[in-house]
Amino acid sequence: MRETGVTVAITPMIVPEAPDAANAAGFRAMVGVRNRVSSALFGADALDATAEQVLPTWTEQTDMALHGWLVRAEDEVVGRAVVDFPREVGSRRATIRVEVVREAWGRGFGSEAMAFAEDRVRQLGRSVLQAMTVHPAGAEPSLVPRSGAGTVPEDRFSRFMLSFGYTLEQVYRISALDLTRPIDGFDALLAGAREASGDYRYVSWTSPTPDEWLDDYAWLKSRMSTDAPTADMEMDEEAWDGGRVRRLEEVFARSGRSRLVGAAQHVPSGRLVAFTELSSFRVPGKPIDQDDTLVLKEHRGHRLGALVKCETLIRARELFPEGERILTGNAEENRPMLAINEAMGFAPTRYIADWQKTV
């Protein structure tokens, strides 16, 4: 229940034209909440983003719609509610993020914001509601997702989602690779991948994507929505073309984020058939993020996942020397990719629970 005697207001967040615009105070407060919550959940791996870095994601909504609200207790912004949903025709789903700063936990603000966000999602015509929660590694496991792979603790975050009728569908493992020390077995892993991938060659680039790879890269991005393990989470087949790739690259450039892409080309056909992405804000001591990684189903069995991950790691150490570790996330049922990560030396740091309900 919400704490009595406290006036709570949930108000729309205005997306300003610039982070220093006259109407940008609410946006900057939202970024402040994002940073405080991220620090509480991710510790040293959290990055304090600036309003300048966050704004490009909110102003480019061609492919994904974003709605935001501020949670105010008295005159203080203590939380935020964010709803995003894809613009693919026929899509039914929306993702809800409700975040409240630690100092305001246990006062009912999160419950009020979740009820508010769910009501807005219904008004937007979406019937499949999705959300995620973050849990520490090493916590006592007790909840098993419907996928049957992995566990998360029945902590305050899980209980919150269960109280709103969500089902735990899938668990993602977040793992870190320490780049400050030698990686045992790396050379053997890379040599084995190179030997097994005789009909393929490794290519890489930093954004923007060269024109010769643009269409293939867009096709690979679209296949992420159909070929990656998603358990029973409803997913839309995303439509990617060169224009969508360029829009994403522009968002990265405007936010000061660098991206390195490594891919495997099938030499007989000339097509790209596997890829991985690393991105970084180039902040010393902060992690490099491993974003999408995929091997097309029809080209699996040639150790292409190990090839692109190992080769791209070599390039990342040259391009992002300030990065001390890499963070990556994989579904617990994705044993082939987890096996590669484990062989490279990635170790679990936390888990992400994917929740879903239909209304």
Results as ranks from 00 to 15, higher is better:
P287K: 08
A188G: 05
R194V: 03
E112Y: 10
S163D: 12
R247E: 07
A149M: 01
A139C: 03
M30F: 15
L338T: 04
T180E: 15
W213A: 04
N23H: 13
L41N: 07
A21Y: 07
E250T: 15
G262T: 02
P153T: 01
A18I: 10
P268Y: 02
G242Q: 02
W105G: 08
G242I: 05
A94M: 10
G256T: 13
A343H: 05
V71M: 05
P136Y: 05
S163C: 11
M30E: 11
V37R: 07
D291M: 15
E3S: 13
G262V: 01
E311S: 02
P86Q: 08
D155H: 06
I96Y: 06
R350D: 06
L168M: 06
G32T: 10
E169W: 03
V171M: 01
R254K: 14
E277M: 09
W219V: 13
A193P: 01
K297I: 09
Y172D: 08
P12A: 05
R93C: 06
A104C: 06
R126L: 00
I10E: 04
I352G: 11
R156E: 13
E169V: 07
R246W: 05
R201D: 01
R282F: 14
P284T: 13
E324N: 14
T209F: 05
L55Q: 06
F281R: 14
A22F: 10
M1R: 14
Y200P: 00
S255T: 11
S127G: 07
Q290K: 10
M132N: 12
F164C: 09
W355P: 01
E17R: 09
V134F: 11
P153H: 01
R271Q: 05
R146V: 03
C310P: 04
L47W: 13
V308H: 01
R247G: 04
W219D: 14
V15A: 02
T57A: 15
R350C: 07
P12K: 08
E195P: 08
P348T: 02
V283D: 10
